[in-house]
Design a protein around this nucleic acid. Sequence first.
DNA 1: TTGTAAGCGTTATCAA
DNA 2: TTGATAACGCTTACAA
Lengths: 292, 292
Amino acid sequence: MTAVNLAKNNSNIIGFVMNSNENIYDNAIQDFFTGELLGGLEKRIHGRGYYIMIYISKHVEEVTKFVSSWNVDGLVALGFSYENAQVLREVYKKPLIFIDGYFGDDGNAYTNVGIEDYRGAYEMTSHLIANGHKRIGFFSDNYIGGDYERYRGFVNAIRDAGLAPEAGEKFVLENGTAGLEPCMQHFVEGHSKISAMFFCADYYAVTAMNYLMDHGIRIPEDVSVAGYDDATVASIIRPKLTTVRQNTTHKAYAAIDKLLKLIENPDEKAENIVMPVELRIRDSVKNINLVQ
Amino acid sequence: MTAVNLAKNNSNIIGFVMNSNENIYDNAIQDFFTGELLGGLEKRIHGRGYYIMIYISKHVEEVTKFVSSWNVDGLVALGFSYENAQVLREVYKKPLIFIDGYFGDDGNAYTNVGIEDYRGAYEMTSHLIANGHKRIGFFSDNYIGGDYERYRGFVNAIRDAGLAPEAGEKFVLENGTAGLEPCMQHFVEGHSKISAMFFCADYYAVTAMNYLMDHGIRIPEDVSVAGYDDATVASIIRPKLTTVRQNTTHKAYAAIDKLLKLIENPDEKAENIVMPVELRIRDSVKNINLVQ
DNA sequence: TTGTAAGCGTTATCAA
DNA sequence: TTGATAACGCTTACAA
């Protein structure tokens, strides 16, 4: 194989590179999302003549060194900021696909596979409003990229429903899960008028639900909760979590399909692929219209 | 890199091969385990001059073709039966490490990283007995390899506690999760004298708990539940699951450390590495001694 | 159609 | 010590 690669000047290797700028890289694939994505990538590429090599690093320079030293034929890149994506794009001239990247106005210069972050949040917020909620909290650990789009969807849904901007309250979860407890404590102590919480990720929603329930708050009777992603845990927890579903496996398939097109056809163009999301209405949101 | 590999006759590639006779991509728990394992492997190997290439197939022949065509320097193999492990061993003569393999008397011919399956089950069963349970069910989807060891631990703990063999009842979950419902229905209808259930995997335990609770059975008041693995979901569910903890990331580290030793030192010998487990006592098991 | 030789990028060997 | 050259295993282009 190495001889073939040397002779043909291609490697038959597809790199899966991950750029985690945080120190959460205790085990980067620990979260369900990356595992499912990777499984989908492997499954879709299997038997098509390419093989997946993985490389995880917080330093873009390491990533660029990796891709050029292995001369990988294509790249699937996860977790890259716009700045790092630019660096990578500059160095690596072969087919390159980002997952969940956000590149602003520069967007059409990159091939990206993302989801309808904005629409999902807009619809879920509208659902909450339709269920009588007039004070809703939006929780995220950052307000950039996809999470910012989700936040925009949230804000606009509130505006379009004719509610005052104050109806939507923004909470930032410092330090991820660790920041969740102090934030939830606030609610446990009754310092908030919010009747519904919309978390930008199921994992946060579930962790918050547990904290609240452990402190005597009933869900959805006392407060409604919604999440995003439809992770496995969303249907395992009780009450079952109402959330926005994205299909990670299909995302992986779309990424591979596009990547192989780019490899096989030099005329294939960059594309911003947006995968659909859909609401999964379950048991964590209460209709408070009648009660009101 | 390919040129280096060709000249030096080694690839600097570590293969991560998975052999599954089912379509594992639909199995959430296995995905979770695999993801964490893979993340651990990558982290431990990072910067040591080797790179991980993944290949998943249900056919051993495909796996052997893969490893020989890429001339990988070492292999981490997951999900191989004894028969398939033999085939792989026959073809692939370089350093090879199995994860959670069971090779019976032939064990010391293979390098394997496993856990204390037997002891974990023995201790958990003893814990259940110490909490007054005299009728315990053991649930697994198979009774080979590690699951058989867990079953042995279960049976022997019952025997050593002086209970009759009938105190331990064995349930086989046909078709995995799908087989769980009919089995649990049996309990919902009150056809069982069992006071505690010991599942060989947290995912089953959690799914069963939900089914039971959804049908009005209280946990742990009506029935106690214990699991195995300490997956993330074990501490997310309420009541929190009492389970046997294994550290998957450490397993990955141990596998890489041994593999690199085998690669760098031709005199390094095969070894059966057994990683420790420990009980995580939480809220899903009730002490029924006093109530009795 | 079949066969032969050059070349891919690096290492390793052997002479100078 | 330095420098030229064969070898790694396969592809491809060109000649027979």
